[in-house]
């Protein structure tokens, strides 16, 4: 059935509309939660469950089709392009938050402090405010949690950088092992990557607890806290997702899935992993370091 020149057009599937509905429920749940609705949690959890079920079901179909050899090389290329551009869209999502960070550092904080074009703003509205980064005292100090200290770059964040960079290397070793059909090595390197990923998340969580509890650095600590937590938070979320995806891949390699030629899912997850890695480098430099 799968010949090279006949493109595989899948039969109708229930997952797309099911998935749309699942997202719908999920978002209603989220919105109700924000509105303080009494049934919010139920709807939200139902939504999460539906989305999860959708993912499992949909990927099962795809894995099944892939393993029964229905996909031609052309389908594989489509998948690759899909994943590549999906990652690009994620990059642009992070770009919005990096943009906010740069804007705050280069424009709004200096202006509020009377630098650049902000002399009138400073003189008439915030005359007591001093521009600084990291921002320790917000323009209006009363309504915000002023952080006592910020997290130094070369403590835990430095270690986390090493962890992520190492995991980028291990996942590449795993890929080479796969290409050379060394299944044992593949599993070991992949397992190592997964472990490194979760260790990263663990350290990050510890660090959050420290910052929130001991340093009084919170989401509500003004723009520094806002950019800090939103950037590192979304990154941490992506690492968690990536680690879970790696875990799934690991389970599949253990089951003997993938061949030395045909392992798109593996590569897609590896790309994703490199992507979170690169984002982290940006974070490390601009959020923690300079």
């Amino acid at each position: 059935m799968a010949t090279k020149d006949i493109y595989y057009v899948p039969e109708g599937s229930k997952w797309p509309i099911f998935g749309s509905f699942a997202l719908f429920v999920l978002f209603i749940g989220g919105a109700l939660l924000f509105n303080g609705n009494a049934n919010a949690n139920f709807v939200l959890y139902l939504g999460i469950a539906l989305v999860f079920y959708m993912f499992v079901g949909w990927f099962n179909d795809v894995i099944g089709e892939s393993r029964s050899g229905k996909y031609s090389g052309q389908v594989d290329v489509s998948f690759r392009m899909g994943m590549g551009w999906f990652i690009f869209s994620e990059v642009m999502f992070f770009a919005a938050f990096f943009g906010a960070l740069f804007y705050a550092r280069m424009f709004s904080i200096p202006w509020l402090g009377g630098l650049g074009g902000g002399s009138a703003t400073h003189e008439f509205l915030w005359s007591a405010f001093e521009a600084s980064w990291p921002l320790s005292v917000t323009p209006d100090p009363t309504n915000f949690d002023q952080p006592k200290e910020v997290i130094p770059a070369f403590g835990v964040p430095g270690i986390n950088t090493l962890i992520l960079l190492t995991s980028g290397v291990t996942v590449t070793f795993a890929h080479w092992a796969l290409k050379n059909n060394k299944r044992a090595n593949l599993n070991i390197w992949l397992a190592l990557t997964v472990i490194l990923g979760f260790v990263f998340v663990y350290f990050q969580a510890e660090e959050y607890a420290h910052a929130y509890g001991d340093l009084n650095l919170k989401l509500s600590s003004g723009i520094y806290g806002s950019t800090f937590y939103m950037l590192t938070g979304f990154h941490g979320f992506h690492v968690t997702m990536g680690a879970i995806m790696l875990l799934v891949i690991l389970l599949r390699t253990i089951k003997g899935h993938f061949s030395k030629k045909d392992h798109f899912a593996f590569e897609a997850v590896a790309w994703y992993w490199h992507f979170v890695d690169v984002v982290w480098l940006g974070l490390f430099i601009f959020v923690y370091w300079i």
Partner: peptide, 10 residues
């Protein structure tokens, strides 16, 4: 968060 509020530096 205070991305869009001057009081917090946004």
């Amino acid at each position: 968060t205070s991305f869009f509020s001057a009081a917090g530096g946004g």
